[in-house]
Each structure stands twice: as structure tokens, then as C-alpha cells.
Simulated scan of single mutants.
Amino acid sequence: MKGIELRDARVRHGPLEALHGVCLAAPAAALTVLVGRNGSGRTTALRALAGTLPLTSGAVLLDGRDITRRPAHERAARGLCFIPDRQAVFPSLTVAENLERARPGGDFGRALSAYPELGPLLPRRAGTLSGGEQRMLALSRALLSGAPVVLVDEPTQGMAPSVTARTYALLADLCTRGACVVVAEQRLPPALRERARRAAVTVVVHEVRRGAVVFSAEAAEFRTARE
């Protein structure tokens, strides 16, 4: 597997252009981080990869194949799991029913091992959970689906520090299993770097500003440049 990439991607929101010819690559078996302030274009880039926002021009490549014209549901069928920052669960369904969407048959062992906090919540409707609990539930989809490409916008939003560290470890573990993992964050979290280092996973960073990628490097080089 080669991973996923944007090539000369432009996206418009009405009269405004949100991405200005962005090129970025997210290799397989690596953790790619899109960093930037709110409004920088990092979420737009993630949604363009997922297919929930159409490109004005440019291309999206999955394993070297052009999927630009493939809608989001077809990309999902090809093994792409997208977890947006909002509305990432089915609020009217129970936690168990949400998990069944990712794993028909009810074998939730891997998700409950990762997030044992979800066990007592299985009968509850997802819409009644806290923000951090909803993030755990949404991330469980990626764990249960075994998707080779996982895109997550702000994966640890609303989580306690201990759960945040566990989540970064889980994302790094997906990479060791060969998955291409792309996350969008406001900055490069030290806990993410540390968990990836322990798992011997390469971290690739693309800094996004005003709809353009202004710097791309591995995490160590990115940190040195910032310092």
C-alpha cells in the first residue's frame, strides 16, 4: 500500500478559495499530522481526502490511483475511514448499535479493550454521551473496521489526558499494522510524538497556513525548525 495524497488540490467555499493548489502525501504505515490554526485549511484538506468536500481542481490519489471523482461512500467501501471533528457518531442509536455499524455481529472486544469506559455505556444512546466519550466511540469505528486508511480530525478533543495518551498509542499501533493514519491537529502534540517514537512509527508533519502547505518534514525536523 502506498497511502493517500492530494495533488495540486484546490477547494472553494462559494467565492472564497480554501485550498490553493495543495500537495501533500500521507504514506502507508506512518502517522501523518496536518497542523494549523483554526481556519488554516487543515480540516478542508482532510475532508477533501475523505471525499466529503469536492475539489475545484487537482486530484486525490489512493495507492497511486485517482479517486477524485469517487464519492465519499465509495472511498469508504475501498477502506477509507473518516472521523470528522463533529457529528462523528449516530446520536439516536445506542453505543452498541454504533459499534455494530463498524463490526456486524457484535464482536466489540478490540474496542472495549482500547476503551473499557464504553462497556457500561453500551445501552446508552450515543447522543447522551460526553464529548470525550463520543470521540472514544467514533475512534472505535476505526479499530473495529480494520480500515487501511484512517482520517481523524482532532482525535482527542474533549478527552482526559490519560485517555489522550492511550488514543495516540492506539493510532500509532494502527500504523505498525500497516495502516495509513492522517490526523488534523492545531499543533504537533508531544504525547503523539512520544507514543509514535515508542512504537517506532514515522511521523510526517504538514503545516497548513491560509490554505497552503508551508512546511513538510518528519517530526524531528519539524520540531527543530520550530525551535
Rank of each mutant, 00 (worst) to 15 (best):
E207K: 11
H13P: 03
R210G: 12
A48N: 09
Y168N: 10
D173E: 15
A102L: 05
P161E: 07
C23V: 00
G105M: 05
G119K: 14
M136V: 08
A138W: 00
P161C: 07
I83A: 05
E74L: 13
T56V: 04
E100K: 00
V204S: 08
G158P: 03
I67F: 07
D173V: 01
A9W: 01
L55Q: 06
P27R: 11
L6D: 02
K2N: 11
P161D: 11
S140P: 01
R210D: 13
E97M: 00
V95G: 00
A147Y: 03
S130C: 11
H20T: 04
A184Q: 02
V95F: 00
F90Y: 13
R125W: 05
I4E: 02
V150E: 11
L62G: 04
F215G: 04
G131C: 04
T94F: 02
A196D: 09
D107G: 10
R125P: 01
V150I: 15
V163T: 12
A138T: 06
R75E: 04
P116F: 13
A147C: 08
A196L: 08
L55S: 07
V33P: 01
P189D: 13
V60G: 07
A191E: 15
V183L: 09
T202K: 14
P27T: 02
R198W: 10
G178F: 09
D107F: 07
L46Y: 14
R75Y: 06
P120D: 03
R86E: 09
T202H: 15
R101E: 05
R42I: 04
L121S: 07
T176R: 15
V95A: 00
A126E: 00
A9P: 09
E218M: 11
L6V: 08
R103H: 06
R209P: 03
S92M: 05
R198A: 15
V204I: 13
R125T: 09
E117P: 05
L31D: 09
G146Q: 10
P189E: 10
R65I: 06
L49Y: 11
Y115S: 04
R12V: 06
V163H: 06
L174N: 06
L151T: 04
H73T: 07
E154G: 08
A45D: 04
G109V: 04
P104D: 14
S162V: 11
V183N: 03
C23M: 03
D63H: 14
P189H: 11
L53Q: 11
G79P: 00
L55C: 03
E207P: 05
P123R: 03
F215K: 13
